[in-house]
Amino acid sequence: MAEAVMRPLTSRERMQGQTEDGRSMKVVAGEFIKPNKRLTSFERLEIYNRQYWFRLVDCLSEDYPGLRAILGDRKFLTLAEAYLQACPSRSFTLRNLGRGLEGFLQEHPDLTAPRTGPCVDMARLEWAHVEAFDSEARTPLRVEDLKGKSPARIRLRLQPHIQLLTLDYPVDSLVLSVKRDQGLRGDASHTMPGGRSRVRSRIARMLRPEPIRLVVHRWDHVVYYKRIDPLQFQLLEGLRSGFSLQGACDAVLTDAPETLVPEVVQGWFRDGSAMGWFCRRSRG
């Protein structure tokens, strides 16, 4: 039964007439499912087959609204089906359904051509959003907590919910725009965010290459995206990989331009502390 339930639907969203090994699905369904007065065995099994795909594709659509906007509904559906066939859920929770999507997109560029680059970046961002939403948050450190301590001995930890992304496309703007449109539609169902062609051209405009460094983080139950300077990004990566505060700063300042004065670095820490990005490293 599980094989039949997970078998992809036809283009008309019906159960396929044949099993994977070429047997008649009507015959197979009849072997283990009773018909009733209104439904054949095939039709009863089909209810579960359709529900499986509707549920899982809906879940991916909810987690990847930006990717869906780039690809359009039809291509997104094709991608979702291919992904779910290759990577069926192996987690007890649907929260983890998209965990392998970015890797899958990289392995199957044909499914997203000609916009593979933006699609991979968008999938990375949208998965980072899922992680930032419900990963652990520890008690944040404040600048005052560090006063009087030697920078060589201070080992900061980044909050576990913080995701650091290097992206080639400004997909953060696009996904925020998509969510804004969805919010408008949710509040007023007759409000249209513009014609389809206007939406497509807006998406195309927003997908011109523009390398960005992005911090995806959570504050007071809300996920935020913050673009940061490449050197600030390098500093955060250094802290995440275990460098002391001194070590991470030295690594950044060694090749930094003259404009990067210590006051700028202090400003980064002040801003990061205000957003609760830093916490103490756990002992042992």
Partner: peptide, 11 residues
């Protein structure tokens, strides 16, 4: 679930 794959349905 079967062979570690979850349908996320109540079969």
């Amino acid at each position: 679930s079967v062979d570690g794959r979850y349908t996320h349905d109540l079969l």
